[in-house]
């Protein structure tokens, strides 16, 4: 009976609704074809799961799924229409096996890691989305929270040295003076003492040779004993005792990705710093250094505004 009823001729309203649905779907399909988005990484951690879940909720029309690296064929065997997103360095190494294959978004890679893998050149089929905060943004943060600081001390080693040129260029228009100091052996404190002596603030580069759990105590205690703030290199350090840093979390990256995935892969940038970010600060450290409490949201908004209207 029910079957028979459904076989009845549709009403005009039903026709109209069906047409609308078809037109909407067709229009949407023209703008962005329902895409097949594949995320991959060495393992599917809870963090990965929640990210994949959030991305699929954000893009209900796309087919978003995660497949562990081990189960994937060689990249060249993947359909070129696939939107491939890499979540870690092992997956990048896998992707670098061959140049064929879909254009790829690479997440969670720092400038330093890219430099170590690719040198100054950059593979054409990758779009690198930098995980480390952009230096110009960190300098703007310094300008905003420590307006009196002029001399910005920067420790570097052979791996991070290439960032200096960019840092100097970013510092110049801000009237900041970069005090670079090479620190090849973190067991030798003299370079650290030298840079602290000659700076008003220390900016941490995201260089794990220099900023890691083994060096953190020494770095933070040494700079603090001179009443000097460390800015950066990441949120972990802010929690440990760095004054502040800019960072992008999952929600920021989702927004950035959403925008990128709306574009055809040919329009993806070769590399990108996320335009969406937040500011994290350590209120206790600020207080002890005699700095007003930092309103993270408003500082982030101000910095973002400054980036939109340079």
């Amino acid at each position: 009976m029910r079957y028979a009823l459904s076989r009845k001729m549709p009403t005009a309203g039903q026709w109209l609704a069906g047409l609308c649905l078809f037109v909407t779907a067709w229009l949407h399909g023209v703008a962005v074809q329902a895409a097949d988005i594949l995320l991959t990484g060495a393992e599917e951690s809870p963090g990965v799961q929640s990210f994949v879940q959030a991305l699929s909720e954000l893009r209900p029309t796309d087919r978003v799924h995660f497949q562990p690296l081990a189960s994937l064929p060689a990249p060249g065997k993947l359909p070129s229409s696939l939107r491939l997103i890499l979540l870690d360095l092992p997956s990048l190494d896998w992707r670098m096996q061959e140049s064929q294959g879909p254009t790829t978004l690479v997440l969670r890679i720092s400038r330093l890691q890219a430099r170590q893998r690719f040198g100054a050149a950059q593979p054409p089929h990758l779009s690198l989305l930098w995980s480390d905060p952009p230096l110009s943004r960190q300098l703007q943060l310094i300008r905003r929270i420590l307006p009196q600081a002029r001399r910005v001390g920067v420790l570097f080693d052979q791996h991070s040295e290439f960032l200096l040129k960019e840092l100097l260029a970013a510092a110049q228009p801000l009237n900041l003076h970069v005090v670079p100091q090479r620190w090849d052996n973190t067991h030798d404190n003299r370079p650290l003492q030298t840079v602290l002596k000659n700076s008003d603030v220390l900016l941490g580069l995201d260089d794990p040779d220099l900023y890691n759990p083994k060096t953190a105590k020494n770095l933070l205690l040494s700079s603090y004993s001179r009443q000097l703030a460390l800015v950066g290199p990441n949120v972990s350090f802010v929690r440990a005792g760095s004054l502040a840093s800019t960072y992008s979390d999952q929600s920021d990256w989702l927004a950035v990705l959403d925008e990128l995935l709306d574009r055809p892969p040919t329009a993806w940038p070769r590399s990108l710093y996320p335009g969406r970010f937040k500011v994290s600060s350590n209120a206790q450290v600020a207080r002890s250094l005699g700095i007003e409490p930092i309103n993270e949201a408003s500082v982030a908004a101000e910095l973002a505004e400054g980036e939109r209207r340079p």
Binding site: S45, P46, G47, V48, S50, F51, L87, L107, R108, S131, P208, N212, P213, A216, K217, L220, L221, Y224, N234, V235, S236, F237, R239, A240, G241, Y247, S248, D249, Q250, D252, W253, N282, Q284, V285, R287, S288, L289, G290
Partner: peptide, 24 residues
Amino acid sequence: LADDLFVDSEALPQILTATRLKQS
């Protein structure tokens, strides 16, 4: 933010703790 894939993977202990920080 344990579930946040993008907020640091390394665990750093708190170094400039409330007990270590001096008064301004």
